[in-house]
């Protein structure tokens, strides 16, 4: 069965996606992205031609399964390293603008 492809993206969609990705875009940038994205999406949509009946999506590039590690404390206690590159660290915490939940 061929995949069904969505219609082209419009400006509203581009803005919605940018917001979902937490990328501030100007009106101009968003407008420029519309044809660009449509070009790329239209191009990738040729994948819909491929008959994938009975094909499982790839789950491991090199067939293999997950290794499990032993339950032991081997890490942590490195607060200085964890905070070393922080734009704002106070009292052993990362600081961010106040969040209202």
């Amino acid at each position: 069965m061929l995949a069904r492809w969505p219609m082209s993206v419009d400006l509203t969609t581009v803005k919605k996606i940018a917001s979902l990705a937490r990328l501030a875009v100007s009106e101009d940038e968003a407008e420029a992205l519309v044809p660009e994205l449509n070009g790329i999406l239209h191009w990738v949509e040729q994948l819909g031609e491929v008959d994938v009946t009975g094909v499982e999506p790839m789950t491991a590039v090199i067939p293999n399964t997950l290794r499990l590690r032993e339950d032991a404390v081997t890490d942590g206690n490195v607060r200085d390293k964890v905070l070393a590159n922080a734009p704002q660290a106070e009292h052993g915490f990362f600081a961010v603008p106040k969040v209202i939940e």
């Binding site: 890490d75 942590g76 206690n77 490195v78 607060r79 390293k81 964890v82 905070l83 009292h91 052993g92 915490f93 990362f94």
Partner: peptide, 9 residues
Amino acid sequence: EPNTQVSLV
């Protein structure tokens, strides 16, 4: 203590 039981991961 805050951020003491934190690895780089």
